[in-house]
Structures are given as C-alpha cells and as structure tokens.
Simulated scan of single mutants.
Amino acid sequence: MSCVHKKIEAALDRWDESHWYLHQIEEHYHNADALRYSMNAFIRSLREIPDMIAMALQNHEGFPAWHKPIRKSLEKEDFLFSQIIRHRNHIVHKSMLKPKSKAFVASIRGYTIKMQFGFYVDPFEDSDLAIERFIKMSKSNPTLMQALSPDEVQALALVREWHIEGYDEEIIESFRNSWLRVNEYLSEIMVFLGGDAFPTGLPPCFKDSRNFRYKKYHDFQARLYTFT
C-alpha cells in the first residue's frame, strides 16, 4: 500500500466493502429480504466514505478548505448521491428500506423478450414464490402459458425491476453509477494527496444487469404439474 493510500486506508476499505455489497445486490436480486439488506448495507457503506475522508485528513494542511466544495458537489449537487443520503437518513432515523418493485412474466430467448405479461409482485415477495403464483394461475387460464409458448428454445422468465423512491433508474444501474461517482470523488482526493487517480469505468467483474434481472425457469412444465 502506498503512503497516499495509507492516509485514507479506512475509507478505501469501506470503498471495497461497497463494491462487495454491489455484487450482493446482484446475487440476491430475486430474494426480497436479502436484496433489501444488501441495498441497506451498500447505502450505508457508500454514505460513510466522505465522513471517513474528512476525519482522516482533518489535520492535513490545506485539505479541509479544499475538500469542502468537493464534498458539497458530491453530497448536495449530485442528485443520485443526495438520494443515497436521504435514504440512509430515513433508514437510520425513521423506518426500514422498502424499495419499489415491478415485474412481468415473459418468454425470452437469450436477452430477447418474445412475449410478456405484467404481473404484480409485492416488494416483500421472493421471485420464486411469485412465479409459483403465476403458474398456479395459468392452470385455470391455460391461454396465459400458451401465449408465452416457452419451450426448449424460449425460456419462461420472471423479469423484475427494483427502484428506490425518487429515482427512476433501476437499482443495479443507479447504484453502479453512484459507485462510479464516488470513484471520481476518491480520485480527486488521491490526486490532491500526490497520488494517481483511480481507473475510470466499472471493473470487468460487473456483468450485464440483465443477467440478474431476468430469472429463467426451464422447469416450468414440472412446476405446472406439481402445483395444485
């Protein structure tokens, strides 16, 4: 670790933690409670970074005055990060995190949606339970499954989107963008301290968000004959 990194070691560790929570959000995208907990942890870890930077460098010559407008730009002027702060304050002082959920059942080939039906999924409901409801419903209304026509080529899928209140972009994309914005903020600090800026853009470990939003059910026929 370089001497520059050492000066803000705790904040960079929290930065690594936020990266890890982003992948937890991806992994648990269709598990409602685990997703909410991962979102909460990501928001907390990202929100704490400016405070940790300010504390670590409060006695560094010239830093507090230089940092004040940089931090303001992040926390007050950047819409997405200001939403992160608002949600963190709400979670800490008022209530639990309840993101918005919307979903539809679809027949897909790869990433191409061939047919879809809007389908209500409660924000506290796991996707597996939701697809079970849909398949049970299709037993009394076979035209639903016939219209979707899933087969060996086209898979039945539940396509889900989560949003935080006040922001229209889906959470994987919006949280990745907020993570990149903090990357930019930390890069400015690194340069101020005499170090190198961080690489721009997402690391290669981040995949197409549709890998996580589209949950396929190749065993729908077995499920169809199992549910009563």
Rank of each mutant, 00 (worst) to 15 (best):
K114P: 01
V121I: 15
I108C: 13
L80D: 06
M145D: 00
N141D: 05
A103H: 01
E132W: 04
S101R: 15
I91Q: 05
I113P: 00
L80V: 09
I84L: 13
P123R: 10
F134T: 00
A130Q: 03
A147K: 10
L129N: 14
S140Y: 07
R109C: 14
F117P: 00
S101A: 11
K102D: 05
R109T: 15
Q146Y: 09
F117E: 06
T112D: 14
I108M: 13
K139A: 07
I85E: 04
I85F: 01
D128E: 13
P142I: 02
I108V: 15
Q116V: 08
K139C: 05
K94D: 09
I91E: 03
I84M: 11
F81Y: 13
L80F: 10
D128H: 15
I135Q: 01
I131F: 03
R86N: 11
F104K: 12
Q146S: 11
H87G: 02
Q83M: 13
Q116S: 14
I85K: 09
I85G: 00
T143R: 10
I91Y: 09
S127G: 15
L80G: 14
H90V: 02
H90T: 06
K136P: 01
S127F: 01
K114R: 14
L80K: 10
V105T: 03
E125R: 15
V105F: 01
S82G: 11
A106L: 09
E132M: 10
K139E: 07
V121F: 05
P99H: 06
V121E: 02
H93G: 04
A130S: 13
F134M: 03
M115T: 11
K100W: 07
P142Q: 03
E132P: 01
H87W: 13
M145S: 02
S107D: 05
Q146D: 10
I84V: 15
Q146L: 12
S138C: 07
K102V: 02
L129V: 09
R133S: 12
R88T: 02
K94Q: 07
H90C: 02
G110M: 11
S138Y: 04
S127M: 09
M96D: 04
G110Y: 13
M145E: 02
S138E: 03
V92E: 10
I91A: 06
R133C: 08
Q83L: 14
Y120N: 09
Y111W: 12
I91K: 05
R86Y: 10
F119A: 10
L97A: 05
A106N: 12
A106R: 01
R133E: 09
H93Q: 08
G118M: 11
M137F: 12
S82L: 06
I108W: 00
R88Y: 10
F119S: 09
G118L: 12
T143N: 08
Y111A: 14
F81E: 00
P123Y: 12
I91F: 09
L129P: 01
A147E: 10
L97Q: 02
K114C: 04
F104N: 11
Y120Q: 11
K139P: 00
